Simulated assay, not measured.
Amino acid sequence: MFMISGTRRTGNVRIRALRCPGMRVDQPHTSIRRWPGMRSEYNWLPPDDSVTVTKPFQIGVSFSSHDQLEFELDGRARYLSVPSGAVFATGTQQALWADVSEHTEALEIYPDLDLVRDAVDPGATALVDLDPAIAVRDATVLGLASLVRRSHLHDDGDLEPMHASTLTQRLVHHLAEHYCLPRARRTTRSGRLDRTLVDRLAAFVDDRLAEPLTLDELAAQAALSVYHFARAFKNSTGLAPHEFVTMRRMERAKILLLATRHSVLDIAHMVGFSNINHFRRLFRRYTGFAPSDLRPR
């Protein structure tokens, strides 16, 4: 999940997990990439009860689910239940995590704060802050982060500079309108969907991952034509509707593979796939693992 940074801390020793050509489920893995206007950090970590840190001024996504873990921000500790796809933001304070009993998959994005300030108020010189967010639903950020994550999972997955800068601008303006202090004035952006609608569509998808889903059904939920819906959804999240649905199916399958004894075939059926070979190909593309890699030992 987004929450853990690439630095693990055990006692007084800090250990940086190194990026390797192929990930192993039982080994920590981290990757840092720089894009126009932002830096991203991806982490896969085995269960760990040591304290880990998320640095200030970031927006991130948990791509793993957690029944309960300890979270501390601004000196206040609490226990959280974190669903896969939850979004976190840190402002001026770092966040601390502990008692993580499940595998962790996290992406953190650190935007250029000058870009964020210009999005809030062009020409302003005052600093802006990110309003902390704890395990919130934000399918717009989830979609954009999923594209960035894909570039970390595959050596040939680098985003083209134009694509990367477009994603950065979408993310920065979204942060300015929904997470920054002060907030930017919200504007109706032509060809985009409102955050509330995107979140409602994501919930609709999550409730039907085992069922066939059509573009017509999603467009009907948005009260738009199929053509205008498909364009607006991709303009908002960075993902075409079918890519978003597949991403969520693969996330559900990953949780089931790690936490249950269901067969790979059964899990494929549980997330809407009848062709096991097609499921395996997509699973590796979206997660970086073969389904068998995540089976409980």
Rank of each mutant, 00 (worst) to 15 (best):
R14G: 05
E211D: 15
L282Q: 12
H152Y: 07
G91D: 10
Y42T: 08
P83E: 07
H154I: 04
H154S: 11
P28R: 14
R14L: 15
K55F: 09
E160C: 01
A232L: 00
A139E: 11
L80H: 00
A176C: 11
T10M: 13
V128I: 13
D118N: 11
H269F: 14
L80K: 01
I59P: 01
F2W: 12
R34W: 04
P296I: 04
L142R: 10
V13F: 11
W35H: 10
L224V: 04
R137Q: 12
P56N: 02
E41H: 11
L167K: 01
Y227W: 02
G37R: 00
L147D: 01
D121W: 11
E217N: 03
A164K: 02
G22A: 13
D155L: 08
W44L: 14
S81T: 12
A89S: 15
H152M: 06
R280D: 12
T237M: 04
V271Y: 04
L107Y: 06
H178D: 10
S50F: 12
S292E: 14
Q68R: 06
R281H: 13
G143W: 01
V226C: 06
I59K: 00
D155R: 09
M3T: 10
Y110D: 03
F229L: 04
V198R: 04
S263M: 10
E251L: 15
S190H: 08
L175G: 03
A202H: 07
A219F: 08
I255K: 13
A220N: 07
V198C: 05
G22D: 15
V61N: 03
G37D: 00
S81V: 02
G60V: 06
R24C: 09
P21L: 14
V128Q: 07
A210E: 13
R281W: 08
E217H: 06
G60Y: 03
S64V: 09
L107N: 06
P182L: 15
F57C: 05
M3N: 13
H242N: 05
V136T: 09
V141H: 01
Y227F: 06
F229N: 03
V100Q: 13
L197C: 03
M38N: 02
R137P: 00
D266I: 06
T104Y: 03
T260P: 10
L265K: 15
T196I: 07
L142A: 07
L107K: 10
L69N: 05
F279E: 08
H163M: 00
F289P: 09
S62E: 05
P241N: 10
D206T: 14
M250G: 08
L197S: 01
R78K: 01
D74H: 00
S225N: 09
L73M: 02
S292T: 13
H29Q: 12
T90Y: 03
L167D: 01
T214N: 04
G37E: 01
R150N: 00
F204I: 05
K234W: 00
A290I: 08
T30I: 13
A119D: 03
V128N: 06
G75K: 00
R295Y: 02
L209H: 12
V205D: 02
A124I: 10
G11H: 05
N275K: 14
R76Y: 00
A219S: 14
R281A: 12
N277Q: 14
E251A: 12
R170Y: 05
R137V: 11
